[in-house]
Simulated scan of single mutants.
Amino acid sequence: MQLFKLRTRLSKFDDFVAFAREFKLSEHDLVITNEFLYEPFMKALDLPCHFIMQEKYGMGEPSDKMMNTILNEVKGIEYDRVIAVGGGTVIDISKLFVLKGMEDVTDAFERKIPVVKEKQLVILPTTCGTGSEVTNISIAEITSKHTKMGLADDAIVADDAVLVPELLRGLPFKFYACSSIDALVHAAESYVSPKSNPYTRLYCRAAIETILDVFKGIAKEGPDYRFKRLEDMLMASNYAGIAFGNTGVGAVHALSYPLGGNYHVPHGESNYQFFTEVFKLYNAKKPSGDIAGLNELLCVRLGINENPYPVLDELLGQLIPKNNLRTYGMMSEEIQGFTTNVLQTQQRLLANNYVPLTEDEIRDIYRILY
């Protein structure tokens, strides 16, 4: 049984200039990024690359329509390497652009075509949550299905992941908070995954310890404390990505996808709404398994003796308030529809649950959080 893999080379540079020089960016590179990153970090370098500014093709998180519009834009451009400089949206889009014969990205997500890698992929994350620079997963809203779907395949794994802490500096605090909470969710779900093992739990523990330490610093000193720990949080997000890239994630992500797909709630914020409620249920159903080790770790880092989830909720709430699901526009009559949607479209994730959840239990979580 395979325990661990990391196909991606990891590099770190103090600034984008050093990265561009070392990686010899050229006219053979397609750079997918955002204008707000291009202006301060890339424009002055006058690089000969082909640049795509993601926000020109749609705002928010990636969708099949956004990806296909960009795909049509780059037809006819000769490039050997895709350079993704951005957050989860840019990274998820870029992963599809290394595939051979891509005409409609929905065909790849629905596995209607062979998924074959044709170009090199280099990823520079500019948020501290997705860990997508080291995973084989791309997530997009499939508009015809009103939900998000994931493509998990080693063909879309980055050849190089490059950590540049300065790229986090312009990230607004809400996006920082949501993305870093997402990294915590990744580490926690990976820790209790049926596929977890001593190797992946090493990365989970390192991620959780760092993230909670930074969160406590923010709670004590305020949002600007994050600037003292940009590299730490970027590394913690990467640790969590390495862990869940090997184990997968579970019900927190599965339940969050209909909310994100229907009401366009950002991925990290959506996961945050479900995080502790799912883990409270896990703990109630099987307190003696791997979750016992996670609970002990959380208690130690939070400085308490038992039941870490109320205290964890309180700490996370000091970063960003948790909302009732109706805040986003969800209606009570959608609870059953969301439940059915999860069971029909998210079995890939539900297979990674710490313990199986019944239809009634999933429905109850939506009701509690509604």
Results as ranks from 00 to 15, higher is better:
residue 49 C to I: 13
residue 312 L to S: 04
residue 302 L to R: 03
residue 201 R to D: 10
residue 206 A to C: 10
residue 125 P to A: 04
residue 368 I to C: 02
residue 166 E to P: 05
residue 150 G to A: 15
residue 268 G to P: 08
residue 94 S to I: 03
residue 2 Q to S: 07
residue 242 I to R: 13
residue 27 E to V: 05
residue 174 K to Q: 09
residue 67 M to P: 00
residue 319 L to S: 06
residue 358 T to S: 15
residue 204 C to G: 10
residue 260 G to N: 11
residue 163 L to G: 00
residue 183 A to W: 10
residue 292 A to E: 15
residue 221 E to H: 15
residue 133 E to K: 02
residue 10 L to W: 00
residue 364 D to M: 15
residue 146 H to Y: 10
residue 57 Y to I: 06
residue 109 F to R: 01
residue 273 Q to W: 01
residue 31 V to W: 10
residue 31 V to F: 13
residue 317 G to R: 03
residue 332 S to Y: 15
residue 181 I to N: 09
residue 210 T to N: 14
residue 18 A to G: 09
residue 154 D to N: 12
residue 143 T to N: 12
residue 40 P to A: 07
residue 17 V to P: 01
residue 28 H to N: 14
residue 234 L to N: 08
residue 223 P to A: 11
residue 359 E to Y: 11
residue 277 E to L: 03
residue 314 E to N: 14
residue 261 G to Y: 08
residue 266 P to R: 02
residue 20 A to N: 14
residue 85 V to W: 08
residue 76 G to M: 13
residue 94 S to Y: 05
residue 273 Q to E: 14
residue 28 H to M: 08
residue 268 G to A: 04
residue 164 V to N: 01
residue 357 L to Y: 06
residue 202 L to P: 00
residue 39 E to Q: 15
residue 297 L to S: 09
residue 81 R to S: 03
residue 141 E to K: 15
residue 312 L to K: 07
residue 50 H to C: 07
residue 21 R to H: 12
residue 95 K to H: 06
residue 162 V to P: 01
residue 73 E to T: 13
residue 127 T to G: 08
residue 37 L to A: 04
residue 293 G to C: 02
residue 40 P to Q: 08
residue 228 K to I: 00
residue 94 S to C: 04
residue 222 G to M: 14
residue 164 V to W: 01
residue 225 Y to Q: 12
residue 123 I to F: 06
residue 23 F to Y: 15
residue 243 A to H: 02
residue 167 L to Q: 11
residue 339 T to P: 03
residue 230 L to V: 03
residue 236 A to H: 11
residue 12 K to M: 14
residue 202 L to H: 13
residue 143 T to G: 13
residue 360 D to K: 14
residue 75 K to W: 04
residue 49 C to G: 09
residue 280 K to C: 11
residue 343 L to S: 01
residue 291 I to T: 05
residue 327 T to Y: 15
residue 4 F to H: 09
residue 92 D to E: 10
residue 190 S to D: 04
residue 277 E to Q: 15
residue 234 L to Y: 00
residue 159 D to T: 04
residue 190 S to V: 07
residue 299 C to M: 12
residue 328 Y to S: 01
residue 217 G to T: 01
residue 297 L to P: 06
residue 94 S to E: 03
residue 271 N to M: 04
residue 60 G to L: 12
residue 4 F to K: 11
residue 209 E to H: 07
